[in-house]
Design a protein around this nucleic acid. Structure first.
Lengths: 114, 114
DNA sequence: CTAATATTTCCATAATCGTTGAAATATGGA
DNA sequence: TCCATATTTCAACGATTATGGAAATATTAG
């Protein structure tokens, strides 16, 4: 995942209501969930919800499909996985989130291995 | 990690320059890095940098200490680790980022039966 | 003390954000 | 067809954001 995609995905999740929406979609699983059901579950106005869905979709974190009168939104797990991967690789020490690569052997403190 | 902390941390990382700053701090390791060094490395104005450092600190993603005339900023790996944990737990299927509730082994395409 | 360095604080500004209300669009049913 | 349902689009608004310039603060050197 590129940095710009990561920033967009992070921004998409960095909002109270939108994070709730995404969590709900995750819980709903791959089958997804109708916009109306999300609106009712989270008590959000339909137009506000459309705004948040758009953000999630532009960030690659959700997909839509029409089913009758309803729009069914579903989480894109692949993107979420890539985001977590990006954060782990780029914003953590390495595999786990440990202090990164001591460029030279630390003098004062001895580093705890693993 | 609470949801509100996660949102704050996500917002702190959801900005181009700030993500760069944090990544640099991660690379710098626990010893941290002087504000001026970050400014030079990323070509950012000192006041702009202070603004971004503040965000990172308020999100618990960085710490400061004074060393002579310099302010040394360091990444808070613990918070970053907690954030990744939050995302994995709450925004993914479970341990990894797999589709939640695989009630059935996902055939090619099945219409919603409910 | 004064001067230089390193960083922060203050004020201003354009841009973006999240929400609302009203109107528009799409679908399915009588 | 007309009507109800489901969702989107549009226009507007106050709030927040990221950045810039100028001035203030803290520390060290001379």
């Amino acid at each position: 995942m590129e940095k710009i995609e990561a920033v967009t995905a992070l921004a998409a999740l960095a909002q109270d209501n939108r994070l709730d929406v995404f969590r709900l979609l995750v819980q709903a699983g791959p089958e997804g969930m109708a916009a109306g059901a999300v609106a009712e579950a989270l008590d959000l106005a339909p137009n506000t919800l459309t705004f948040h869905f758009d953000r999630l979709r532009m960030a690659g974190l959700a997909t839509v499909r029409r089913e009758g009168r309803s729009m069914i939104y579903a989480a894109r797990f692949e993107t979420m996985n890539a985001l977590v991967g990006f954060l782990t690789e780029n914003c953590c020490g390495g595999t786990s989130c440990a202090p990164a690569t001591p460029s030279k052997p630390a003098r004062k403190r001895s580093k705890v291995p693993a």
